[in-house]
């Protein structure tokens, strides 16, 4: 309630965005947000309250149609600007309300990598595509060059700069899409099922890159993924959604103990499932493991 009061006050005074920033140190906040698409009676997300601090890596899980995509699109302003609908409550990025900020303004702060990399590469050469967002912002030639080179180096795709989209593998396409978004130096990075088309090795590579971006640049990361095992070690927090609502929200180990997860359609890693049925048999197997390593160490201790 307090947050809401402060930010409305600032808007009334017509302050410039820089001065509005102190939103309790939160980078993203949802306050009782409900949204339904046009021609849709059921809300896609319902009474969402969410407070995200800078630097978190958040894994968002849930069955298809649970509202994950709607949640993500509410952060970068595609909702409500591109998909007008009925909404109540408020979403703020860095203290400014998404409803009152244009998508292009939000695009400077929020980078969005979509599921299918093919559909977010526009240009015929990798280099040109990485520059796409910066060109749109009308930056100077030298500035574009600098940021493009920086992003290309960051993702280690120097060898690909002159390739055309059809000369790239799926993994490379996903890296190019990521580079194009990072070149705009966003503070928040959103990834919508970025690994669904990748093989596990390439997916792991991508996860490593995402971790690096978070650690070295302090970018806040939100990532939707069906395969929890891939990201469970990287995430600082897991949010579980079902039917447009947030059911669980907390550290990975805490959320994974929730008995309801499989019932609402969230698959937990094999190793966690094994731990769960072991504990049901005899509650002596300690804290929830996030990797095979952890469970093995646990078991060795107990079985010795």
């Amino acid at each position: 309630m307090e947050c809401e009061y402060i930010s409305t006050l600032h808007i009334e005074r017509g302050m410039v965005p820089e001065e509005r920033k102190s939103n309790n140190g939160l980078i993203i906040s949802f306050e009782d947000r409900t949204y339904s698409y046009l021609n849709c009676k059921e809300p896609a997300i319902q009474n969402i309250n969410l407070a995200i601090s800078p630097g978190e890596i958040i894994l968002i899980a849930g069955p298809s149609g649970c509202g994950k995509s709607t949640l993500l699109r509410s952060i970068n302003g595609l909702i409500p600007h591109m998909y007008p609908g009925n909404s109540s409550g408020k979403v703020s990025i860095d203290g400014s309300s998404v409803d009152e900020t244009s998508i292009t303004e939000i695009a400077k702060k929020v980078g969005f990598v979509f599921q299918n990399p093919e559909n977010q590469i526009f240009m015929f050469s990798v280099e040109r595509d990485v520059a796409f967002g910066l060109e749109n912002l009308g930056l100077y030639h030298e500035k574009i060059r600098e940021q493009v080179d920086w992003a290309i180096q960051l993702l280690n795709i120097e060898k690909l700069v002159n390739r055309a989209p059809h000369e790239l593998s799926d993994g490379q396409k996903q890296k190019v899409a990521l580079a194009g978004v990072l070149a705009m130096k966003p503070r928040i990075l959103i990834l919508d099922e970025p690994t669904s088309l990748l093989d596990p090795f390439t997916a792991l590579e991508l996860v490593e890159i995402i971790k690096k971006i978070n650690q070295n640049l302090g970018v806040t990361i939100l990532i939707v993924e069906h395969r929890l095992d891939l990201l469970i070690n990287a995430a600082t927090r897991i949010i579980c959604m079902s039917k447009g609502k947030i059911l669980f929200d907390g550290e990975p180990r805490k959320v994974l103990t929730e008995k309801k997860l499989p019932r609402i359609g969230i698959g937990i890693p094999t190793i966690t499932r094994l731990h769960r049925i072991l504990n049901e048999e005899k509650p002596v197997f300690g804290k929830i493991p996030l990797s095979a390593d952890e469970l093995a160490t646990n078991l060795k201790l107990i079985l010795k």
Binding site: M82, F114, N136, M184
Partner: peptide, 10 residues
Amino acid sequence: EAMEARAYGA
């Protein structure tokens, strides 16, 4: 969507 997210028309 991807165009909007990358500031097309800014």
